[in-house]
Design a binder for these strands. Structure first.
Lengths: 256, 256
DNA sequence: TTGCTCCTCACGTCACGTGAGGTGGC
DNA sequence: TTGCTCCTCACGTCACGTGAGGTGGC
């Protein structure tokens, strides 16, 4: 009594969708008129609205097919499950929304505000932009890998930055970037670090400090590729520091 | 420095997804090792996390490609838009969730509680189950088509059911279901309706009553296919009622 | 006659997933 | 040697969308 386009508009779907539901066996093929046009009645409209209601809720069409011929109790259980599934999907979408809301620019992608504050402070302390960049990419990795611990680490780093000798260490490291690995000044820098060392915080000082278990092999490999493998002079420097009994988070076997 | 599976696990995606991003040109192909294996560095991990963050937010990969090379301000505008889009999608999902929550069984699919209450009352008044079914399917159509007006209509119908003569009319109609269209008793029923008529409510009595504009051609055609086209005696009855100056919502030209 | 709807294939899309068939590393 | 990972095609999936080429109704 109505045509396919009338039916489709009525239910709020496309004509193609209706034909697709026929092909899938979800909606029974109606009788045709003299020219081969499909003619639908109210039952078809009711069926289609049911299909759309379930499909809109994210139910796969194969599942819709089952449900349309399900018994009362079986259906009730399924509807309950669909509702919980929708709620769960809404929750993850809300997480993604808050994550997206933090993305003010491409540089801060995946970085929470407390890391951005920390990076701003490094800039304010006079560190070079490429140094800040190394930190930034490192923190993107850390935040992705250990989101629950990263805030604690940042707090610890912020406290460390209150220490002048710690800041001096950073500035020294910044200076060595372009030096050749065999630059004799690196030995002086390593000695300077050894002086500063007592001021550097370790896991023994602070329970929030990172411990070896915080970094799996993947993490260590990635952080290394950003630092010792990228800046030749730093590889040398790490070696010199190890000779002086100072080791950081990096793989002791980085030089393999 | 890390393998494809390490990279994938780190970012929380599948190995296939990483290769897909290579194929789409989203993630640059890294160098290979001696056996042709891809070797990734931290930059790749950072890039992949960025891609995943955007893709999780529902951004099409083609769009992700643009955004990764966008300028600060252009990116900020896009992120804002993605956030609004996510919020909108969350809102429609919440609508679908509330709609799904109402689906206690297959019969009540797409029907709000106030319609179910109305149908229960019809049963309580002694109407046959098949009669209730005709009402139910009609209301499914009405609720789908005019959701904003259906509650008002139900309220009006509930008030009408307080009228004994109105209820009598329903019971008479129920009785005629199986009669032949030429059954002489139909004339008596039509006469009885004519007696009841002053008690029937019309648009003149109540501004909430349905007017012809509430039903487009599709709606009329569908409601007809559930009633006058389905039950032969009703087609005859409508004709008899029209002779007596009583017309309902149905198409006056139903008999074409 | 023009424009709109309808019909049936067949192939496209989106973001991957699934084997198939083979090689490399411990 | 076994099991695991890696590689590259090629094709599959899900829910339709997009024409292609043709007919019917006003």
């Amino acid at each position: 009594v109505i045509t396919i386009s009338e039916l489709a508009r009525f239910a709020g779907v496309t004509v193609k969708a209706v034909r697709h539901y026929h092909a899938r066996g979800l909606l029974p093929e109606p009788d045709r008129d003299a020219s081969g046009y499909r003619r639908y009645d109210a039952q078809a409209a009711v069926d289609l609205i049911r299909i759309k209601t379930l499909a809109d809720a994210g139910v796969p069409l194969a599942r819709v097919h089952e449900l349309l011929s399900a018994e009362q109790d079986e259906f009730a259980v399924a509807v309950d499950e669909i509702g919980r599934d929708l709620s769960a999907r809404i929750r993850v979408m809300e997480q993604h929304r808050t994550r997206v809301a933090r993305l003010t620019d491409a540089a801060s992608l995946a970085l929470p505000a407390f890391v951005l504050d920390y990076l701003d402070r490094l800039r304010a302390l006079g560190l070079s932009e490429r140094m800040v960049n190394v930190e930034r990419e490192g923190w993107i990795l850390l935040c992705a890998h250990r989101p629950e611990r990263s805030q604690g680490w940042i707090r610890m780093k912020q406290e460390s930055l209150d220490d002048r000798s710690y800041v001096e260490g950073y500035r020294l490291l910044d200076l060595t970037w372009d030096w050749a690995p065999d630059d004799p000044r690196l030995v002086e820098v390593a000695d300077a670090f050894a002086q500063i060392a007592p001021g550097l915080r370790t896991a023994e000082d602070d329970p929030a400090a990172p411990v070896p278990e915080d970094f799996d092999d993947t993490m260590v490999a990635l952080l290394d590729s950003q630092t010792v493998e990228k800046v030749p002079s730093w590889a040398r420097l790490i070696g010199l520091l190890q000779e002086r009994g100072l080791i950081g988070w990096t793989d002791p076997h980085y030089d393999d």
